[in-house]
């Protein structure tokens, strides 16, 4: 008999730590992982509400979010590789100009 709010608190915490990772970390890969963390927090909220509301739509939505996350991970990591090739760094503080 776990109240819904506990799940939502966990979801909010995961999301907040994702944002915090984005803000305080410099490594671009870690930042990218923080994004995944945020997505997971959102997914949890979807599932929790789906269960409480007895609707499968939330589950389907999470499925789509995962698809998008997979695609995003592929493209994002490819971008990271390309950036690393040209800049030879993973520190986002040094990647602040579009031109080389």
């Amino acid at each position: 008999m776990v109240p819904l709010s506990w799940y939502l608190l966990l979801s909010a915490f995961l999301f907040a730590s994702g944002v915090a990772g984005f803000l305080i970390r410099r490594n671009i890969i870690t930042i990218f992982m923080s994004i995944e963390l945020m997505l997971n927090g959102v997914n949890l909220a979807f599932i929790a509400f789906a269960t409480v509301r007895h609707s499968l739509n939330g589950n389907v939505f999470v499925f789509f979010v995962m698809v998008v996350a997979a695609a995003e991970a592929a493209v994002g990591l490819a971008i990271i590789i390309a950036v690393y090739r040209t800049r030879e760094t993973l520190n986002v503080d040094r990647v602040n100009l579009l031109k080389l």
């Binding site: 776990v2 799940y7 890969i29 990218f32 992982m33 995944e36 997971n40 997914n43 949890l44 599932i47 929790a48 789906a50 269960t51 589950n59 999470v62 499925f63 995962m66 996350a69 997979a70 991970a73 592929a74 990591l77 990271i80 590789i81």
Partner: peptide
């Protein structure tokens, strides 16, 4: 997720997220 009764999503979470995506991260 399993506690919430979302069996399918839990399985997919393990397979896609923990499996495929994170392998990609580690690989990179």
């Amino acid at each position: 997720y399993l506690l919430l009764g979302a069996e399918f999503v839990a399985a997919v979470q393990i397979i896609i997220y923990a499996g495929a995506i994170m392998v990609l991260f580690v690989f990179v």
